[in-house]
């Protein structure tokens, strides 16, 4: 069983760690209230023993805020093959990065940077912070490739690695201002942007480029 799944189950059952160390006013916490079960749009989880098929109590009943990226109505698939809606991240601080697994330059550097950000977070923030990688290589980055990437880079359960349709990835990229373009050799030219989302899924910080900015990134996650 995945660490991530364990964590999710823990969250579903208690909701407690979402709030741990969170000094937010009640209105913010109230967004963590359960919402109605999701429509039967998502394919059933491959391993029902491990993960609840419908994360019924996980999400909030309230609509997303006006600036929330979670309004984006598209679905992704994680590296276990499970359907994943960005709205499932609600309630947790998120570092979002678009990448492709075969990237030889910028993406591995960014992941290394994010690993160090994660390692240096205060324990309570580290417990809640989610690191999300979304691939724009919709052809080559299959579930298996992404699972292998997780292993190679030793990404723990607080890392979520997603793939999606070209439509879904393009709209997410547009929302965070990431430009990317497939090269003739199959690699991608892309801007290097790490986006930090707050509990509501609103952009609170963006780190542009490959150098520096890690303290600000960590601070934005802890805010």
């Amino acid at each position: 069983m995945h660490l991530k799944s364990l964590l999710l189950v823990a969250l579903l059952l208690t909701g407690r760690s979402l709030l741990a160390g969170d000094a937010a006013p009640p209105s913010r916490a109230s967004t963590l209230l359960p919402e109605a079960p999701k429509p039967a749009c998502c394919k059933p989880a491959p391993k029902p023993a491990c993960c609840p098929a419908t994360p019924a109590p996980a999400e909030a009943a309230l609509p997303f805020t006006a600036e929330s990226l979670y309004q984006l109505d598209v679905s992704f698939t994680d590296d276990t093959g499970k359907a994943f809606n960005l709205g499932e991240l609600r309630g947790r601080p998120v570092a979002l990065n678009l990448f492709f697994a075969s990237c030889g330059y910028a993406c591995p550097l960014t992941v290394t940077d994010l690993l160090s950000v994660q390692a240096n977070l205060p324990a309570d923030v580290r417990e809640r912070a989610v690191f999300v990688l979304v691939s724009f290589d919709t052809e080559r980055d299959t579930t298996a490739v992404l699972a292998q990437y997780r292993q190679q880079r030793q990404l723990d359960g607080n890392w979520i690695i997603l793939r999606g349709t070209d439509d879904a990835v393009r709209e997410l990229a547009a929302l965070v201002g990431v430009k990317y373009k497939r090269e003739a050799d199959g690699s991608f030219a892309h801007s290097n942007v790490v986006t930090i989302l707050n509990a509501q899924g609103e952009i609170v910080h963006q780190r542009l480029g490959l150098r520096g900015g890690l303290e600000e990134t960590a601070a934005a996650l802890a805010r």
């Binding site: 393009r170 990431v178 990317y180 030219a189 290097n192 542009l208 480029g209």
Partner: peptide, 16 residues
């Protein structure tokens, strides 16, 4: 439209 890689982010895209 967002494949047009001419961005104003000279710092961000210096690697590109």
């Amino acid at each position: 439209f967002n494949t047009a890689m001419v961005t104003g982010e000279s710092r961000g895209d210096s690697g590109l």
